[in-house]
Amino acid sequence: MIRTFAIALGVAAQLTGASLCRADEPVDTARSIIQDQIAAFLNDDAEAAYSFASPAIRGKFPDKTVFFDMVRRGYQPVYRPGNFAFGRSKVTGDQVIQEVLISAPDGKDWTAVYQLMKQPDGSYKINGVMMLQAAPGPEI
């Protein structure tokens, strides 16, 4: 699945003329936001975690407690990551797509694909996260 996403990400970049980015301002901002939200989850700070959600997400989860419970139940690797590292990024217009490679507490590896959208005030907010479980590697 991850390989399929990687191919799709590369093809989409070629088709749209967008570039895969490594270290530009929107990517740095997106990574900081993701890192701060994960820290909020680790600290059980629902208010801080909710502050990074886009208006679209807030529309679906109008209460910070409901949002926090949804993440706790449906996005356990994001809620309590063992380790995480940033993968590839893509900037297209007012959107940043950021891969986050996560080692979950149960030992399974995941890729969280974050979508962040630029807001009218110039800030970025998390507009969605897609979880992809990594295929198990060969046994050593």
Rank of each mutant, 00 (worst) to 15 (best):
I2E: 10
I2T: 12
R3T: 09
R3I: 08
T4E: 12
F5W: 15
A6C: 06
I7E: 05
L9Q: 15
L9G: 07
L9W: 07
V11W: 04
A13C: 14
T16W: 06
G17A: 02
S19K: 13
S19Q: 13
S19A: 14
L20V: 13
C21W: 07
C21T: 13
R22M: 09
A23K: 11
D24Y: 00
E25L: 14
E25K: 13
P26W: 05
V27Q: 09
A30R: 08
R31P: 05
S32V: 06
I34E: 06
I34M: 00
Q35T: 11
D36N: 12
Q37T: 01
Q37A: 02
Q37D: 01
A39I: 03
F41N: 08
L42I: 01
N43V: 01
N43E: 15
D45C: 08
E47T: 12
E47P: 07
E47D: 15
Y50C: 03
S51E: 11
S51I: 04
A53K: 07
S54T: 03
A56N: 09
R58G: 00
D63L: 04
T65F: 10
V66D: 15
V66G: 07
M70I: 05
R73C: 04
G74E: 12
Y75I: 03
Q76E: 02
P77A: 05
P77R: 12
V78G: 07
F84L: 10
A85D: 00
S89E: 02
Q95Y: 09
I97V: 12
Q98L: 11
E99P: 05
V100E: 12
V100D: 04
V100H: 08
S103R: 15
P105K: 12
G107M: 04
G107P: 06
D109M: 10
T111S: 13
T111A: 11
T111W: 07
A112W: 02
L116W: 11
M117F: 06
K118R: 15
P120I: 01
G122C: 09
S123W: 07
S123K: 12
I126H: 04
V129N: 03
Q133G: 03
A134L: 09
A135E: 15
P138C: 07
P138G: 11
I140F: 14
